[in-house]
């Protein structure tokens, strides 16, 4: 079986929310096979590394296996929060896309939905 290092965007989707200076980002696998990989490998440490440059100090991970979902709660990631941040994206709404781009995991074809453009990586 071919395994490639790809962005988690290939096997999961995400949404970011904000409360004060705390961002939460869900990471939801499309398929059961993808859930196993994100549950095993999408760790608090890796997520903290991805957001450290924004000031993140701590990440807490919550699991919802029946929904194939993880929820990351990231402290101090929003430049003070929606009412005091100097950033263009004061809510950190776009941080979900950053996670999907930056978190690289070992991915096999069976974890990817059948209509996904990522499948072409396995045909080259």
């Amino acid at each position: 079986m071919i395994i490639l290092d790809l962005p988690v965007h290939a096997i999961a989707h995400a949404r970011a929310g904000d409360k004060g200076d705390v961002s939460n980002i869900s990471l939801i696998a499309y398929l059961d096979s993808g859930w196993k990989v994100i549950n095993d490998l999408a760790t608090e440490e890796k997520v903290l590394d991805i957001f450290r440059h924004l000031g993140a100090t701590q990440v807490k991970r919550f699991e919802l296996p029946s929904l194939k979902a993880l929820n990351f709660v990231i402290q101090s990631a929003l430049g003070g929060g929606v009412n005091s941040s100097l950033r263009l994206d004061r809510h950190g709404k776009t941080l979900s896309s950053h996670l999907l781009h930056e978190l690289i995991l070992p991915i096999s074809e069976d974890m990817i939905p059948s209509n996904s453009p990522y499948l072409k990586n396995f045909k080259e």
Binding site: H13, A14, R15, G17, D18, K19, V22, N24, S26, I28, Y30, K60, F62, L64, L67, K68, A69, N71, V73
Partner: peptide, 14 residues
Amino acid sequence: ATVTEQLLYETHDP
């Protein structure tokens, strides 16, 4: 998928 994304939106400890 749409329901799960919204379920965790602005949720901390589920």
